[in-house]
Design a protein around this nucleic acid. Sequence first.
DNA 1: CTAGATTTGTTCGTATGTATC
DNA 2: TGATACATACGAACAAATCTA
Lengths: 245, 245
Amino acid sequence: MARRPKLSNVIAEDLLRWIARERLHPGDRLPNEKTLMEHYQCAKGTVREALRTLEVQGLVKMQTGPNGGAVIQPVPIGAVTQQLRTFLHFEELSFEQVYELRHSLEVTLALSVAGHLDGAQLARLEANIEECAEAMARDDRPGVRRAELAFHDILCDSCPNPLLTFMCRFINGLLRDLVEYRSQRLEEHHAFGRSNMESHLKLVAAFRDGDSAAVGRLMADHIHEAETFMSRLDAAFRSKDMLGR
Amino acid sequence: MARRPKLSNVIAEDLLRWIARERLHPGDRLPNEKTLMEHYQCAKGTVREALRTLEVQGLVKMQTGPNGGAVIQPVPIGAVTQQLRTFLHFEELSFEQVYELRHSLEVTLALSVAGHLDGAQLARLEANIEECAEAMARDDRPGVRRAELAFHDILCDSCPNPLLTFMCRFINGLLRDLVEYRSQRLEEHHAFGRSNMESHLKLVAAFRDGDSAAVGRLMADHIHEAETFMSRLDAAFRSKDMLGR
DNA sequence: CTAGATTTGTTCGTATGTATC
DNA sequence: TGATACATACGAACAAATCTA
């Protein structure tokens, strides 16, 4: 046992360390394939498999043409999200389980950003609330839900904790997808939208006042209400769609 | 714009859909390279790049020899973890930020498993505490820390929420690595070990009693103490090592 | 707008290492 | 031990994309 490691994997790991050591920024370029072939004394196909690894991980993007090659990408949050999703695709995940997490995470997020919100961010939050109101006026229910989730994404922008940010964004993305597939005929939609707007308004006010205690309490209540509504939405969907999932 | 997608990517996505449609189980095999070459009417290198994609995503593992080829792997948690780590490697993540999350997540985890612990799992927890005691007797400090983290991994085994499980396991893995690189000379290590053991014992007792309120309270205090110690450990490390990071 | 240069993408043929029987 | 089947790696060539003069 203990097989010889694949050469392309060795090269991929070496390139990864090199990127980290050189502190490469998005937009910077890796050496082209020919140079790498000479450096590692290996064939084209092997270099390509190594670059392929980095590309799948979202760290680089290949470009053809002059000055082409592997270009460093901005933080590959998309690729990571995608992989975590395909992982969860093999597990079974329910609405309640998502909210079991969201409950504490969004409160932690709110407390974390409470000190870091500047005027511009507060303005964005208020503009988002306005956007919700317009979508409600058009009776564009999926649009309302998307905009409401965007409110929480805006909070993520001001969060200094990258791990917390990632997890909250990931959960928002999950909910965004789940909500698209659910029935949009429920009577409660309007009441839910008004309740959300009220919560968001109160939250912005608490952020402005720098009242952390109020922020935590408001967010906890807000998520709790959202869970109640979402589970009803889910139940309605399941009873209509006999697949059960 | 809207470039022609790479053939290898098209094949990779097709294989992914095929795996999902056929409900392939871990251990099942994909067709070998030659068969795939004929099926997609493309060259070996192209098939290899497609398989490479799946391999990097952790869905398959390549095997040489007769009956070799791409073998479906069990849930690719390792690959997902790895990718999330390299992602965080480009962000800056501090000890405090990890604990900002761990605080709420471990409490949520404890409450989530409170009802699902059977006798076997409780026995494993007690065996783990015994293991900690032995490591302490040997004065094997890194061993103690590893075993203590294993206690929390055991809790994950009984958690029915796959997303919560993943995140707690991921954080445990982060701490495991961080602790390995930190100075192990601190006087407080022994006191910390005893405090942890006491917390773990109380937790197991609360789990046995099915006392959820106590479980939540004990875990919150436990993580809070751990954070206090860990940040001291971190400060000692940073002051000794002048790199600052 | 065209032509050429540059670089990745893909193909074919071949050889080597490795696991199974 | 040897034969077989398969992935791994090499090397040379051509196709396609993209930039620049």
